[in-house]
Every structure is written in structure tokens, then in C-alpha cells.
Simulated assay, not measured.
Amino acid sequence: MDFGASVIMQSEGESAEDIPPSILWGLDPIHSAFVKLYIKDILELKKFQPIPGMFFYKTHPITKVDILGTIVQRREREKLFNFGVDDGTGVISCLWWKKQRTMENVKLASPSCGLNLLEQLGRINQLEKNNFQLQLGAVVQVRGCLRVYRDQREIKCISISKVVDPVFNAQISRMLELPYLYRNFYDKTCQIQMDSPESNPQGAQSLSLQQKIKQFLNQNRVKNFYQQELEAVDSLVCIIQQSLASLCQQQHLPDTSQDPPSSTSVSKKIHQAFQDAVCALQVEGIIFQKKAGYSELFLVTDEEEELHSVTLGIVRDDSTRPKYVDKGCPFHHILSCVRHSYSEGVSEAAMQRVLDRLECNSEIVSTMDQHYTAS
């Protein structure tokens, strides 16, 4: 059961051009914080369609939120608690997954130590259970990740704190804090100093190297590669050498770009540049790894036929199930099934790229926001 208002999509007065480039999101301090917002504004955040779980308040990217309110609805399921929190401006659904703590395999290290581990573990379990007896009317502070499920905004909780405050100090403090945060941070555009390529050759080098790697992979129809193999491609290495030479000129340093490739300093800089570019391509979903690690194989998403086949099979099979026959399979369900059947290393960005490609080929159809069915 979901609580709160339905998702409010991007307003007509705001355009996609207002959103800064994704490469700059990490420079906004709000992006990595648990953002304290009114629930009304959480329900009205602009949704960034290409990336599930990414939202915007004006020009600020937001993935995590912090709310304080009263529990007005509550339901306990087998694996989770589902409760609605009201802060006076709106109601939003919050999910808290139950933690399973097993005691069958706990054994005493030494019976003479005077500590019964099973008893202590039982007390901890009881304390945790008591802590989550969240009844209607209880005031709680919730931190978690924002997501959309069945067209409803909800918070997947990371932490829940029950507020015992007879004189309402916590609520009053939040009421005073929020206007200050909105006025001084949220309603202001984050001022990011944009360096030109001439003043920031390393930034230009990184973008140029990413584009060249994309072209190299596409032109040669590369299906998989190791990073060391890219570092042996002369046309790609030349980009880094030119950047190093330009940087040395600006800083009036000796030109080391023409040093032998075996030079320790040059090889380290080349390796780091390729590592940064490869990481950026992973974030975009261009490439992915079945197993994480520098020495592991990288797979090119567009060329990985098995991944496309597995994804298409999941959509075809599951979209006929009664629970998905009307709206189609949700994105996170498909991602979970692919990770289980194919590889845990498939990122959300890579999965989205595969689904977009299947839709372009008319093999699947997006029935609604982040839902897919077989064509």
C-alpha cells in the first residue's frame, strides 16, 4: 500500500535545459547530502528520466532525503514495514525492510568467560524489535533514498529514529531550519566555476579521451577489452601526451610527454587518465564489468548479445504475468532479474541502455514511466 499524492511530473515552465550537465552534479554539495525538504516539495521534485532515482529541486540533483513527521498510516508485511509520514505539508510512503538475525549458528567461545552470547543477542533483538514498534501518532525522523514505485514517490529508509520529545523541540527546530535552508541553499543556483579547455587541459583531455574511446569501440565493433589493451592504442595515448605537453607549457615545466613510455611518471599518468575515462564510461552505461576490478574484463553494452537476449526474455516472460500484464514490468524488477540470471555487475545505466536499444529495435515497448512490455 502506498501513501501520498501521485507523482507530479516536470512543470511546463521548467525545461531540461535548466538541468546542469551530469558531469557537474558531484560538484553540487546538495547532491551527496540527505536533503531536508518539505514532503510537499519531495512529491513535486522534477524527475530525471534517464536515471532512475535521480530528482531535481530547481537545479540541484537529489537522491537522498531527510524528513521529520508523524506516522499517520502503517502496515506490516512479511519482509517490511510500510508507513506514511505526514509533516503538515503532505504525506509520503516509507519502506523499512526487516533485518533477519539468525542465532542458530552462534556458539559460545568459552563457557567460563561469564558471557552468554545467545542471551545478549536475544536482548539486542528485543531492543531492535521494540525500537521499531512505530505506532500511529509517533514522531519519527526518516533518512533514505527517494524512488518511484507504481507512479508513487516513496522513501526506501536507511535509518529511522523515533523522536521522544514532549515539548516539541525537534519539530520547532525543524520548522526554523527549513526556511533557512531553502532561502540560503535550495533556492539558489549552485555556482560552479566552469573552466575553459584552455585553462583546464586535464578536463579537456578527459572528455576528449572518453569520446575517442567511444569512437574506437564503435568503429572496431569491440565486444570486450581489458584496460591495458586500450593503453596500448597509439591514437588514444597521443591524446594524453598532447595534454601533458600543453600542461607543461602553461606551468613552464620541462616537457615530459615525449619521455619513453617506460618512464614511471608518464606511465602512471597515462594509466590514471585511462582509468578515469573508463570509470566515466561505466557511469554512462557504455561499458560494464561482470566482476569489479582493474584486471577484470570490460564488456561493451551495445555489443553484449547475451545481455540483450536475457533482458528480452525476461520482459517477454514476465510481462504476461497477471501483476504486470496491464502496466508492464517495472525497471527495477527487470534489473533484479537480469542481475540474478546474468550478472550482478550490470549497472542501472547499462540496463537502461539495453532497454532503450531493445525499444528502438521495436522488440519491447515502454508502456509508462520505467515500465516495459514485449511488443
Rank of each mutant, 00 (worst) to 15 (best):
S208A: 13
D259W: 00
Q211P: 01
S366L: 08
F331H: 02
M351D: 06
L307I: 08
F56P: 00
F168T: 10
S262E: 09
N125I: 04
I240M: 04
Y180C: 10
V310F: 07
N200T: 02
E344W: 01
F331I: 06
P50V: 07
L217Y: 01
D41K: 01
L178A: 01
L281S: 05
F168K: 11
P52K: 13
N184Q: 09
D234K: 04
L244W: 05
Q272A: 13
C238R: 07
D317H: 11
H252N: 08
Q242M: 13
Y182H: 03
K162R: 15
N131L: 15
L209H: 04
V139E: 05
R74C: 00
E119A: 13
S267L: 03
G285M: 02
V365R: 06
K64V: 01
E284P: 02
E304H: 01
A277P: 08
R150T: 03
S235L: 14
A33N: 06
D87M: 02
E12F: 11
P197R: 12
F225R: 01
H340R: 10
I172P: 00
Q202L: 15
L209D: 04
K323I: 08
R101K: 10
R221T: 14
A5I: 15
E104M: 13
P61C: 09
S246D: 11
A204Q: 12
V237F: 07
A5Q: 13
N224A: 15
N169V: 06
Q133H: 14
L335K: 03
M175E: 06
M1R: 04
K268Q: 14
F185H: 07
K40P: 00
D255K: 02
G293F: 14
G285A: 05
I160H: 04
I62M: 04
K46H: 07
I30S: 05
I213F: 07
K327V: 05
V300L: 11
Q250D: 08
Y294P: 00
Q211H: 12
T59M: 13
V139Y: 11
P322M: 11
K268P: 00
A232E: 15
L281H: 02
R339Q: 13
S309L: 12
V35N: 10
Q152M: 14
F225T: 02
Q251R: 10
V354N: 01
L68N: 00
M351H: 03
V65H: 08
A33I: 02
H60N: 09
H332I: 11
L236M: 09
S341T: 05
S246I: 06
Y38C: 00
N184D: 12
V266L: 15
P21W: 11
C94L: 14
E303D: 09
L247G: 06
K129Q: 12
N125H: 08
Y324Q: 07
F168A: 15
D259L: 15
Q211F: 11
L146R: 01
S263A: 14
N361E: 12
G122P: 02
Y342C: 03
P201G: 01
K269W: 06
P201I: 05
V163R: 05
A349W: 00
A109Q: 07
K162G: 03
D255I: 11
L230F: 08
D151M: 13
R353G: 05
